[in-house]
Design a protein around this nucleic acid. Structure first.
Lengths: 205, 205
DNA sequence: CTTGATCCTGACCGTTTGGTCAATAATTCA
DNA sequence: TGAATTATTGACCAAACGGTCAGGATCAAG
């Protein structure tokens, strides 16, 4: 689904577009859209500014492409929840997966955080459309488990919000977290342990 | 502590500085620091750009002043936790207070969210200094309650992180929350109910 | 090697932006 | 009232920024 749509893509095109996406992710996630210049992206990608604009028509184009390319990967963990699995394991597994995302892909987390904060100018369709459907599907699964008495009753949608906010907090506000915890501690390990305990307690029937 | 330090402040100065602070809060919280122009602040305040720069020396100055002026108010709820009060009520009261802040002061929430996301260029001192002390004090109180068996054991610092992230999520990512919930629902009321239930369950010994 | 397509860049352009300043208006107060 | 202080603004500047373009370099294929 990723690259099959454009068979006529040179190795150079492939490589440079990848470089630009990575550079753009660096800069956008650190400075937001308005705080990012094409020059910074070019420098981070190791290319010249006009060369960047040879592959993408505008800064907006880069940003939009980056968001849409990363969205699937970003939402993947929720879609891997298995309705046939053990409820507690599935939920805790999802929490752990999201926590791993925050640790391993903080740039992506911040990129989306900026976008939503900004009012999601490039994601409005997805927010009201695809995302809601994905959430609804998960809500059904959770609701089913609760109806079966295999999970304590809670509002499934706010449960999802809580997982999103708490896991992404460790990536988006990492500086604050580290400042409060001090040195020599691993925010992600500790956070993972805390969340595991928290959701086990909350969701045990 | 707020205005007593500068007795020689005209009514006009007082009024215009307030207008600028409010306009700046509007624009900064919506667009972030780099996404904000002095012209936008001036327009939102109903003043001209040079007039804004008559009261503040630079855009940076406006931003810094705004952050420091709002910080106390932002951290107030945590300092109102009463070590002599009932543990569960105090914690749930704090959660409710933070939730009310998200509903009533979403601009402030987003302002700080942008700042932390950005790497807190204007708050580094406060993050490593004052904030940590305030948190430490609260951590002591919580730890005491847990040691006395009046609250279930958890990591107090990560408990605080969870409260911050979940309550502020409803302000910072309000667009996403509303998109997922759909119309006709009150995110803040529902969120408050969810959090109340969640923390009651988590913290009951 | 030749040719056509792809790739790359220095120089450039118009606009936006943070900030300045001299001049004018309004306010304060003796 | 009148002088001194404070408040306000249009015009302006230099730097930064998004984006363009003509022309040259590189590459793939016959």
């Amino acid at each position: 689904m990723t690259d099959a749509k454009m068979p006529r893509m040179t190795r150079i095109q492939q490589k440079n577009r990848d470089l630009i996406m990575d550079g753009a992710l660096n800069v956008f996630s650190a400075n937001g859209f308005r705080g990012t210049t094409i020059d910074q992206i070019a420098r981070s990608a190791g290319l010249s500014k006009p060369n960047v604009l040879y592959y993408f028509s505008s800064k907006d184009d880069i940003h939009k492409t980056l968001l849409t390319e990363l969205l699937d990967m970003w939402l993947a963990p929720m879609q891997q929840i298995d309705p046939a699995g053990d409820p507690m394991s599935e939920v805790l597994g999802y929490v752990a997966a999201k926590m791993r995302m925050s640790r391993d892909y903080p740039r992506e987390s911040r990129l989306f955080a900026y976008e939503i904060l900004q009012g999601a100018p490039h994601l409005t369709q997805i927010l009201g459309g695809g995302l809601r459907e994905i959430v609804d599907r998960t809500v059904m699964v959770l609701q089913g488990w609760m109806d079966d008495g295999r999970l304590a009753r809670t509002d499934p949608r706010h449960l999802i919000f809580s997982i999103w906010s708490m896991t992404q907090h460790y990536a988006d506000f990492e500086i604050q977290v580290r400042a409060v915890l001090g040195r020599g501690r691993d925010p992600f390990d500790e956070g993972q342990a805390f969340l595991d305990q928290m959701y086990r307690k909350l969701l045990t029937p």
